[in-house]
Amino acid sequence: MSKEIPLKSDDIEALSKAIGSLIIAWSLIESILDIWQTIINKFPKTNIEMGEMGRLNKYKIKFIRENISKIDDLSSYNDIIIDLLNDIELILKTRNTISHCYPSGLRVSDSTVIFRSLELVEKKTSHRVKDRSMHINKICKDAILSQEIYGKMLKITNEILDKFFPDYKIID
């Protein structure tokens, strides 16, 4: 059995940088997912019923994936947007783990961070502890990937807005 130790202050500092980077990039990614939903739903010259926009990330991604190809004027963006949605789905588990759990320890033998959460059980009358493990390199890799995804999303979004919604601007 691997030994699990509490996180030390140096570990917490390094982990905080990676987690902070991912969370900031994720908030920017999520805001662009919201903008993409609005673009799809309000696109000029289209009378296609798109359905209800998503509130949770998986439903935002589903809405965009299902509807982006319905807009002929955006066909040149379809492949890159679908690729970015695929990349977003790759980091979604990391994002959810670090957003909804707390780091409770480090398994030194394989540099794995143990994240802990409390889950409701028994008809939502009590909690159960649930541990999830994630390698520190996965967190760092996803933090970098999330920044790259956001940069690509911002570029595409600005191009679409400039072309079809010239009065609407987002901050670079």
Rank of each mutant, 00 (worst) to 15 (best):
V121W: 07
P103T: 15
L106E: 04
I39Y: 12
K124N: 03
L154K: 06
D110Y: 00
L56K: 02
R128M: 05
S99D: 09
I98N: 01
S117A: 06
I80N: 14
M1G: 07
K3L: 15
I32S: 12
E30A: 07
D110S: 08
G151H: 08
F165M: 01
G20E: 05
E49N: 06
I19S: 00
N47L: 07
D73G: 05
E89F: 02
S76R: 01
L84N: 02
D162G: 11
L85S: 03
D167T: 10
G51N: 01
K62Y: 08
T112H: 13
I68A: 02
E66C: 08
I71S: 05
K123L: 11
Y102G: 01
S104L: 03
N67I: 08
H135E: 06
K155G: 11
I40Q: 04
F43P: 00
V113I: 06
S133Y: 08
N86C: 04
K155L: 15
K58V: 03
K45M: 03
R65H: 07
L28D: 08
K138N: 12
Y59W: 11
K17R: 00
S9L: 05
S2G: 09
S16W: 02
G20A: 10
I24V: 00
D167Y: 12
Q147T: 04
K123A: 13
D131K: 11
I68E: 03
K130V: 01
L85Y: 11
I139F: 09
L90I: 02
L154V: 07
I144G: 09
D79I: 01
R55E: 12
I24L: 15
Y77P: 00
E4L: 06
M134A: 10
C101S: 14
F164H: 15
L22N: 04
I98W: 04
S69Q: 13
I35L: 11
